[in-house]
Design a protein around this nucleic acid. Structure first.
Lengths: 252, 252
DNA sequence: TAAGTAAGTTGGACAGTACAACTAAGCATG
DNA sequence: CATGCTTAGTTGTACTGTCCAACTTACTTA
């Protein structure tokens, strides 16, 4: 039933007398936005988590949680702006890759009442992962049972969905490019893919795919190391990710 | 922006005296769920739309809109249950393919105030597309400029996102199987793919892909027509869709 | 019996990955 | 300065699955 409304109300929801209209004078769910922020640190995929406070009425005191919070109807023009705000507040990072992940809402996920969260996931380069980090924020590797320690709300589920979505898309997109610094070598990019996918990739197929995509371009510089120097590349367009027509190998 | 909900409500969110906790005693966005319901009718991909009423305070009177409405915190255990409820109310269909599409929220999408909708998309077989259809609901083909006539809210954008997501996934999944009747032939399945993708597919590659996937099984029956009869198949498991390792051809 | 149409098969060309061996360029060691 | 080690990058063959087109099969209609 597409709820009709009482008199209403624009922005201030006066409850019109006896009109029982769902949504306007019925209780509204809490609305939050959470952001799963990934980076690569120490050869591992890591997520930014916050230690929650323990003020009065605060659920899940001292637990770890994803960065996020209530939508501020006065400050946030839309959901994505809200997500960017929370991202910036916690990392100082301006505009990395940000994608909507999904939403989770139920009567029970927040002890304070029916609540729905809009989850986003962001990829930021390791170089930006340290700067201006909020004091209550910390990076956690998610290998094995690493981050399992119970997260607040249903954030463990959201995090798992984010990892799954990321792994899935890395299989056939150029998303890991957003985890790289401005300049990077092909072996570094491949390593990033391998860390996210948690499996080794074929060197020559990987190079063929990346080089034939309209994704990166060589710059006039090399990365010197103890061995043969590697050609440095940079992203061609800071724009949209590339979608490949296949996964790397049988997804099974 | 005024409107706090007085004392209220939900699962008991008492507002502690003077505590100014965002979200609890701050205004909450409206929360809705919308469902994009697809089927194949008359050799075309079609969507279910509703003609809105024109009661007092109703935004977008008489406009077309996606089926949906406010989350009912008393009846809906979670968002997906809410989506299934709305799906059932409008089509009578019980449990087709239902996937979360994303969420749209902003200060301006609903004239009544800051609102966020959780969008789902559903696939139902043509056979079920007629039964128990709500009186205000109607199927619309979305060829060319078919359904362009302005939809309420940002529903045009949501619909476009749904079509894009569907087309994308059809490229490398077995989603169209959920648009089929219980028994179907391979040419019928291929035709469904072609309708959704709006381009012809190669017969032999299509057959190879479908038959080598663990998706369908032949039944001991044939579809008789004016020409050579076709083998009938059914879905092996009513369960999860199959993901193929490639798209059908270069997506560009 | 012949023509027509759609179902289903077959085979060669092609694209991109899988696998493995190879060359290239730097460093460290003696 | 030659040798060996390590990583960057290339080459070539095998294989998988699509692309493309011709072919066979089965049934209807004239």
């Amino acid at each position: 039933m597409a709820g009709r409304q009482g008199t209403d109300s624009g922005a201030g929801d006066k409850v019109s007398s006896g009109a029982k209209r769902a949504g306007l004078d019925f209780p509204r769910p809490l609305t939050t936005v959470d952001v799963v922020i990934f980076t690569i640190r120490l050869e591992a995929l890591q997520v930014l988590l916050l230690r929650r406070g323990h003020g009065e009425g605060e659920p899940f005191p001292d637990a770890l949680a994803l960065p996020g919070g209530f939508v501020d109807v006065a400050r946030d023009a839309d959901l994505e702006a809200c997500a960017r705000r929370k991202l910036a507040e916690k990392t100082g990072v301006v505009s990395p890759y940000l994608e909507q992940l999904g939403s989770w809402g139920s009567a029970t996920r927040d002890p304070r009442g029916w609540s729905a969260t809009h989850a986003y996931f962001a990829l930021i380069p390791a170089s930006a992962a340290e700067t201006a980090l909020a004091p209550d924020a910390q990076w956690f590797a998610l290998e094995g049972a690493g981050v399992k320690p119970k997260l607040a709300f249903d954030h463990a589920e959201i995090l798992q969905a984010a990892v799954q979505r990321l792994r899935n898309k890395v299989e056939y997109t150029s998303l890991p490019a957003y985890l790289m610094a401005d300049e990077f070598t092909l072996p570094e990019l491949q390593r990033t893919y391998e860390i996210v996918l948690d499996r080794p990739l074929e060197k020559s197929a990987f190079r063929t795919r990346m080089l034939s995509a309209d994704l990166i371009e060589p710059i006039n510089k090399q990365r010197k190391g103890p061995n043969r120097p590697a050609q440095l590349y940079r992203l061609k367009t800071a724009a949209a990710p590339v979608y490949f027509a296949r996964t790397f190998n049988a997804p099974e």
